[in-house]
């Protein structure tokens, strides 16, 4: 809905929203003739306000690209979601950057011009920051603007139309390498108690999952996990155990769930565990959680430890049972081979 003005205080509503080109000029000519009659020799400028659409809510989140921990050679990606509340038509989004000196570091996965399709309320874009290997250690600030306009060709109304845009603030700093992470979430998978087989005790497997955000700028992650397992009243320490697997490292700035596997020899029951997530020599997180160990066969899909989870004593047993005979066989083979090679050749 728009308006145009004939004279101050006299507004006429127009419904025709397709008034463009020649029609516009024809109408202007009619006005010129009308005003020529009333105001001879006076040129009148008329600003039509004839817009095709009402604006709907538009937004971006987050409205920034911030990272104070970039280092040389790293890539940082910030997902920014463009949103609008009434996607009744295609819109063209244009991205312009004003980040003095480092614009070449920045790129957008969808390019600098793309369509916000009709019917879609959210369009994520990835702003990628590629820090050169020779980047100076310093702070950079700037802005990225996202401007939207109708994707239809030509003016969609008359007068001074309004386009909407949103600003993404850029604030980055290039620094030396930082190894750091934060723990966003932890969880435990259900587990069963250990079991005896072939005279060996295969312990239960605690699967401790940590959602880690690498807040440094180098591949990194938890360096170790330790569980101190107490009775349900947290009065008696029953077992201390540490991860047996290598915990996966996480790329810089990524959020990822990683797994620590810990053996437990405790029987079925409920326990409290004080867990410690190590960040090198530091403690990244320490807290208490409930540990429920179920009876054998009660957890669907559960897979316990294999030989890797055996105690050192049991490993020695296995080594003795398998390794020694193997060693004997190998030794015999070597001796026989040596004898054959050292036997004097009979020459006829």
């Amino acid at each position: 809905m728009g308006h145009f003005s004939l004279s101050p205080g006299s507004w006429v509503q127009r419904q025709d929203i397709a008034l463009v080109g020649a029609k516009m000029r024809s109408m202007a000519a009619k006005h010129r003739r009308f005003f020529s009659m009333r105001f001879s020799l006076v040129t009148l400028i008329v600003f039509f306000v004839c817009a095709p659409l009402a604006h709907a809510g538009f937004g971006i989140t987050p409205p920034y690209v911030n990272n104070q921990r970039l280092t040389r050679g790293t890539v940082f990606e910030q997902k920014i979601t463009l949103v609008r509340s009434d996607p009744s038509e295609d819109l063209t989004a244009e991205i312009t950057m004003n980040i003095p000196g480092i614009e070449s570091w920045f790129s957008v996965d969808r390019g600098n011009t793309f369509i916000l399709p009709k019917g879609t309320t959210q369009i994520p874009i990835i702003v990628r920051v590629q820090v050169p290997e020779d980047a100076e250690y310093k702070t950079h600030e700037g802005t990225i603007r996202v401007r939207t306009s109708s994707a239809a060709a030509g003016p969609q109304g008359s007068g001074v139309s309004i386009a909407l845009g949103a600003q993404i603030d850029v604030d980055i700093e290039v620094v030396d390498k930082i190894y750091d992470f934060s723990v966003r979430k932890i969880r435990l998978s259900d587990l069963e108690e250990g079991r005896w087989k072939w005279g060996l005790f295969f312990p239960g497997k605690i699967r401790f999952l940590m959602t880690i955000e690498n807040t440094g700028n180098t591949d990194y992650g938890p360096t170790g996990v330790r569980f101190e397992i107490y009775d349900a009243d947290m009065e008696t320490l029953l077992e201390t155990t540490e991860n047996t697997n290598t915990i996966e490292s996480i790329p810089p700035f990524a959020i990822q769930e990683v797994l620590a596997e810990l053996p437990t020899r405790l029987p079925a029951g409920r326990y409290k565990a004080k867990y410690t997530i190590q960040k090198g020599e530091e403690v990244a997180q320490q807290d208490v959680l409930d540990v429920s160990i179920s009876t054998i066969g009660s957890v669907p899909g559960y897979e316990g430890y294999g030989f890797g989870g055996l105690s050192n004593a049991d490993k020695l047993k296995v080594a003795g049972f398998v390794g020694i005979p193997l060693l004997i066989v190998l030794s015999l083979a070597v001796i026989l081979a040596r004898r054959r090679t050292s036997r004097p050749h009979v020459r006829w």
């Binding site: 000029r25 006005h31 007068g159 139309s161 909407l164």
Partner: peptide, 14 residues
């Protein structure tokens, strides 16, 4: 004389 057209852009920011 006539109807003059143009476009202004309003960029919102924090």
């Amino acid at each position: 004389a006539g109807s003059y057209l143009g476009q202004n852009t309003i960029t919102a920011k924090k």
